[in-house]
Amino acid sequence: MTTTTETALSAPPRSPFRAWVARRLFRYAVKDLPVTVSFPDGSRIGRGGPLMRVVRPSAFFHRLGAQANIGFGEAYMAGDWTSPDPVAALTPFAARMATLVPRPLQVLRGWVDAHRPATELNTPDGARENIHRHYDLSNDLFEAFLDESMSYSSAWFEPGDDLHTAQLRKIDGILDLAGVTSGSRVLEIGTGWGALAIRAAQRGATVTSLTISVEQQRLARKRVAAAGMTDRVTVNLQDYREAAGTYDAVVSVEMIEAVGEEFWPTYFATLARVLAPGGRVGLQAITMPHDRLLATRRSHNWIQKYIFPGGLLLSVPVIEDQATRAGLRIEDRRSLGPQYAQTLAQWRTRFLAARDRVAAFGFDEVFERLWEYYLAYSEAGFRSRYLDVWQFGLRSSG
């Protein structure tokens, strides 16, 4: 099939000077990392540890010099570098994300970092296009590696849990924070494939669930019908900004990452606007360190280019500030960061085991390497604690 992965197979941009700078900076960054980077001539750098094998050094450093973070990921997609354990190889890089480039040279970030395309701004039309590029890829693709609940967010594991049990615990946790019980009127922002809406309906709630993914709406409605909950769950193809009505509970699981900085105030204002007096919000959000958000908020990285166009993670201070500005207060919170690393590890194992199925869906080998890198890159972020994920319970402060 034709996808943006084709760009990774083209010859990398040629800039001998940038490639030279990239080579020097890469060697500087790796010399103190607990990794082993090997080259075709037999040379190695790093303090020793997980192996990263640079197969085509010239292409690797030209990509790195041209687009830094984006080039590093594209080099993996193209096969310029590989690893028998990409998560282990990437984790030391994630742990030192803020210091890989020497501080005096960080002022050059604007020279090497790509900038976000204006077309990825999450206006109502832009958000639909951004979501379409990921969630409308293929329901079959997601079914190949998710558990039977089709939950595409961090699970909450306890000892002995399989993935499905842990996903249901996560859903119950966010429903509890939102106070969802029998008779609750619930608004869900971000349907996924219907698991949370079905679980809330099984508690006796009535649910209005919003998605802007055509494929998600189609399968979610089918799953709601199969669960016998069509009288309690309505799945609308609708932007969160168009939400109407009043609800006892609002729940939103890992959708806020797709909102975009320009629309954070609108998102939180929407939560406050539709919440009934005494109502509660259950919010699950992936976060990054606040200083790294400030340093990278204008940049365009590999995840944004290939996985979540228009996406931007928040920090906990930003969530606290935006909630306060909207008249909401955070009453409860729990971190599930290590749980996300475990979730991603299971997704990656399942995805790799389903390679034949993925190929049969029409996705090429470069796409498979793209997704392997995405899952490994994300897991490394959580294993290093560079990334975290939180469940928040909010209530109107009025």
Rank of each mutant, 00 (worst) to 15 (best):
W111N: 02
G65C: 10
P34H: 04
P34K: 05
G42K: 04
P84S: 04
L25D: 05
G73M: 14
D113Y: 13
V101E: 03
G79A: 08
A68P: 00
E74I: 03
A66E: 10
H62V: 10
M77Y: 09
L121I: 08
A68T: 01
A118W: 01
H115R: 14
L51W: 01
T99Q: 12
R96T: 00
F72R: 05
A98W: 06
F93N: 08
D32T: 07
V55E: 14
A118Y: 11
R44A: 14
A88H: 01
E120I: 06
L90M: 14
L90D: 11
A66C: 08
P124W: 03
T82E: 14
F60K: 14
E74W: 09
G73W: 01
R24K: 13
P57S: 07
E120C: 00
D41E: 08
G48V: 12
P117D: 06
V37W: 05
L25G: 13
L64H: 00
V87H: 01
P102L: 07
L108D: 03
R116N: 05
A59P: 01
P124M: 08
R23Y: 01
H62E: 15
G73N: 12
V87Y: 04
S38V: 04
M97I: 14
T99M: 09
L108V: 01
A29P: 06
T123P: 05
S83W: 00
P57T: 07
V35D: 00
S43C: 08
R24P: 02
I45P: 03
W111L: 15
A94I: 05
L100M: 09
A94T: 10
L100N: 02
F39N: 04
A118D: 11
M97C: 06
V87D: 01
R53D: 13
A75V: 05
F60Y: 11
P117L: 10
G49Q: 07
T123M: 04
H115A: 15
P84T: 07
T82Y: 00
H62D: 15
V101A: 03
T91D: 02
Q106I: 01
Y28H: 13
T82Q: 14
A68G: 07
R56V: 12
P104T: 03
L105V: 04
A75C: 11
F93L: 15
R103S: 10
Q67V: 03
F61K: 15
Y28V: 10
T82F: 00
A89K: 02
S38M: 03
E74D: 14
D41M: 07
G48C: 10
A66P: 13
F26D: 06
P92K: 09
P124T: 09
A114Y: 13
A118H: 12
P50F: 12
R23V: 00
P34T: 10
T119Y: 06
V54L: 12
L121V: 05
R44P: 04
A75D: 00
F72S: 05
P92E: 10
R27G: 13
H115T: 10
A88L: 06
R23S: 09
G71S: 07
R116D: 12
V107Y: 04
V30P: 06
A68Q: 01
N122G: 14
G42M: 06
P84Q: 03
A88P: 01
S43Y: 05
A98N: 08
G79W: 03
R63K: 09
H62L: 11
G49I: 13
P104Y: 01
V30L: 03
A29Q: 12
D41K: 00
Q67H: 11
I45Y: 00
R116I: 07
F39S: 00
L100D: 02
R24I: 13
F39W: 12
Q67M: 11
Q106R: 15
